[in-house]
Structure formats: C-alpha cells, structure tokens
Nucleic acid binder design. Sequence first.
DNA 1: CTATCGATTAACCAAGTGGTTAATTGAAGG
DNA 2: CCTTCAATTAACCACTTGGTTAATCGATAG
Lengths: 127, 127
Amino acid sequence: MANTDDPLSITFAALADPTRRAILARLTRGEATVGELGEPFDMSAPAISKHLRVLEGAGLIAREVDARWRICRLRAKPMHDAHDWLEAYRRHWEGNLDRLVEFVERTHRAEARKTARGAPRAPRKKP
Amino acid sequence: MANTDDPLSITFAALADPTRRAILARLTRGEATVGELGEPFDMSAPAISKHLRVLEGAGLIAREVDARWRICRLRAKPMHDAHDWLEAYRRHWEGNLDRLVEFVERTHRAEARKTARGAPRAPRKKP
DNA sequence: CTATCGATTAACCAAGTGGTTAATTGAAGG
DNA sequence: CCTTCAATTAACCACTTGGTTAATCGATAG
C-alpha cells in the first residue's frame, strides 16, 4: 500500500492484518496505552509501534500524549466508510443470489452449447 | 500478505486495491471475460490476470473456462464475512459515539490533572 | 497446418510490509 | 543529577506486491 492510495484502500490494507484487527477489537473495550495494546502479542515494541502508525495513518485510531504514555482510542469513521462500501454488495449474498446466478448461468450455457454451439452469453464479438 | 494468512486478512487485502474494487463493482452488473474486465484499465493483461488471481484467492470471484475465454463472476461470501466483522464496530460510529467518548475522556483527564496530578484513567501500575 | 486470439506463466524490477535489534527521546522518580 | 521507563526512530532483513515485457498454452478460424 503506498501512502498515495485512496482512503478506502488504506483502510482495507490496515484491516488486512490480524494483529491490527485484534488491537482495534481491544480498543472497543476502552482506550489503552501502547504498552497495554502490545502486551497480548509476542512481538517487539517497535513492531507494535509500526502497527499503530498504520492504524493511525488509516484514521482508525487517535493517539494522545499523556506524560510518557501514548493513549490510543478508536476512530471508527473509516470502518463506517468501509462498511458502506461493502453494503453495496449485500444483494449479492442475500437470498442466496450467488447460487441462483450460478444455476441460471449453468443452465444458460448448457442450453447454448446444445443449440448454437458457442453462442456467447454476452455480446462478445467473434471475428 | 502471505498465503498463510487467515481468510479475513486475505479478503481485506484483496479489497485494498482500487483496481480490484473496480473489477468487483463491474461484476455486480453481470459476469464478464478477463478481457472485458481489463478493458477500462490502462494496464497490461498480465497485471489484470494477477489482480484476478488475488480476487480468486480471496474467494471473491470464480472463474470458469469457456473455450478460450475465462468467464468471471462475483462470489460475495467473503464480503459478507468482512461486512459482519465491521458490523461489530457499528456502535462506535452510531450516535456520534466517537465524539462523545472524546469529550468524556478529555473532561476526565483534565479533572485528573487538576486533582491528583497524573492519576491514570486505567489501572496502570506506577512503580 | 498455420496464424491468430484470449489468457496465463515466467522472469524480472522497484517499492512496500512486517519483523528484528540497537539507539534515541522525553518525562518521572530517587 | 542520574536512572529508569514508555515509546519511537534508525537501520537492517526476508518476503510480498504490483507492475512490466517476452514467451507459452489452448482453442478457433482460414
């Protein structure tokens, strides 16, 4: 993921790591310091720091300095946007549409094979 | 993303690319060949092929061979799962909870600063 | 048979990712 | 002061990613 990517790509890329998703899940139970967030993981502090930087870069968390601690908390707006994007695909999984489309397609193709031998299912130009 | 990653990571990683998201969007309007899918993009055929392989690896599309064409169509199940995962965070963006938490926290911290000078907002051990 | 066409594979490259250890910064405590 | 502690930065590493061009494969059309 380059830092020139669009916000949605940055969000999805940030979510594409189980450690980072676990950190986000932990933050739903309340704010935490970097040390507290890293404690469950068998991972060095710099590694956690990098994960947090990715999450911050995606706008998924906010950090605030408190003395020598960095308090992290959730910023769910990007998840909302990602959720919205996925929402557009809902009709494809509701009502087993996947399997319906598969069935229709299979039927259509078999029939085309029998009749015209290769009549395409779409206006695909055959020279 | 390694191929040993969990399904959710693979799905999010696959979605973290605008070309791949555009391909998925195109497929909501019906199946298409690889050539048709790649036509809108200023990109070589192998590049499209790789994108499709990523999408297929994530279970987001299925390919079927028809003569010399590969017909691609949407498989929305992984999106459904991703959607479900994001759903758990809904309460953090509904009702402007983000800003509410921010306000409460700021107030709490300011007060702590005035009274005990550093009393932590969590059971953070101070040696 | 041969040329062509859709698509993939192979080989390569620049840049990014996820991790490490070592060094650094900044605030608190003795 | 000087040390300790939370956290980050620096430098490095192996591996992945997203793209390229060239070569290959399988099916179709002449």
